Simulated scan of single mutants.
Amino acid sequence: MSNSRTPFVDRFGPDAADIEIDSDAPAIFGQLAARGSVRKFRSDPVPYPTLRRLCALALSAPTKSDLQQRDIIIVDEPSLKSEITAPLTEGPLGQKWLADVPTLLVFCGNNRRQRRIHTLRAVPFANDHLDAFFNAAVDAGVALSAFVIAAEAEGLGVCPVSAVRNHADTLSRLLKLPDHVFPVAGLAVGYPAETPRISMRLPLSMTVHRNAFEEDGLDTAIEAYDRRREAAQPYAAQRYVREFGRAESYGWSEDKARQYAHPERADFGAYVKRIGFKLD
């Protein structure tokens, strides 16, 4: 998990050396500091009552203006789960591990209930613009984060799956999502078959700001992060070698530049409009 005096050094590098977790700190601090995503699970399923309890904990998280615009769909029926995950495992960049996920949750933004309330109360819906979509998406993201924390405290392993949005229309059909309800992310859930490693992150000096945003020294910090990460957690494969060649040094920034050199989910905006949202 971590060989440093504090796992923050492993994750963020030397500029986090001043951050410590006291011995009497809440256990959740250590859990969050050392957490990592799990992509290899034992075959035994997570009991439905456990999942339902974790959903209740997740939905106890904050929600914008008490609008409660998030839903969670538990996918534990094997054939349905296979239909959803099969296209996500295909191709050279397919996520093969998804084929063996015991349970998949889909976190959805739901602006439909709010619109129904306006019909029931005969009050105009005056916020039919980008914020309606944005608020529901953020609500779902907040609930997903809370589920992750609760599930890992339960001893489960999880890994968010943004790739469910690659096939938003198909997913909507399979899960019978109506207009104004949309997938934000999937979450693989199960009992871990291995201890996850700490994912290295950009230094806090680049991502935590005080009083105002600043990015002085960003390029230098990215280069240092690339070197640190390549030494400790090298990528198993390089993206799009045929197009970009094989880099002698392949760090985080090279990987992310190559990733976003190709369109991802370019049709998602059109999908969101088809299900009734205005993005003005």
Score class of each variant (00 low, 15 high):
99 A>N: 15
122 A>P: 02
174 L>R: 07
69 Q>H: 05
77 E>C: 08
94 G>N: 12
90 E>R: 15
119 T>M: 13
144 L>Q: 11
148 V>T: 10
138 V>D: 00
167 H>Q: 15
176 K>L: 10
161 V>C: 11
108 C>K: 00
128 D>T: 07
166 N>L: 15
114 Q>H: 12
153 A>F: 06
71 D>M: 04
150 A>D: 08
126 A>C: 09
190 G>Q: 05
97 W>L: 06
97 W>G: 01
75 V>N: 04
185 A>H: 05
103 T>M: 07
150 A>K: 04
124 P>C: 14
190 G>F: 04
94 G>C: 12
194 E>H: 12
196 P>S: 06
108 C>F: 04
127 N>M: 09
125 F>H: 15
154 E>L: 07
111 N>W: 00
68 Q>C: 05
135 N>G: 01
141 G>S: 14
110 N>G: 00
178 P>N: 09
152 E>Y: 06
174 L>T: 04
83 E>H: 14
179 D>M: 07
188 A>H: 03
117 I>N: 10
91 G>D: 15
139 D>F: 02
90 E>T: 14
180 H>S: 02
170 T>L: 14
154 E>I: 06
133 F>T: 02
120 L>P: 05
198 I>E: 00
105 L>G: 01
134 F>S: 08
161 V>Y: 02
146 A>H: 10
173 R>D: 14
116 R>M: 12
154 E>P: 02
85 T>Y: 01
116 R>W: 11
87 P>I: 03
185 A>V: 11
165 R>S: 10
127 N>V: 05
154 E>C: 13
118 H>V: 07
160 P>V: 11
175 L>Y: 04
162 S>M: 15
162 S>C: 14
93 L>V: 07
101 V>Q: 02
103 T>G: 05
86 A>Y: 11
191 Y>L: 06
97 W>C: 03
122 A>I: 09
101 V>A: 10
130 L>P: 00
121 R>T: 14
72 I>G: 00
165 R>E: 12
172 S>E: 09
73 I>C: 08
68 Q>G: 01
181 V>T: 07
150 A>H: 06
83 E>G: 08
151 A>L: 09
187 L>G: 01
96 K>W: 10
121 R>W: 08
192 P>N: 10
112 R>S: 07
192 P>S: 08
68 Q>P: 02
120 L>N: 10
74 I>C: 08
153 A>S: 14
141 G>M: 07
121 R>Y: 12
136 A>E: 00
179 D>T: 06
74 I>Q: 04
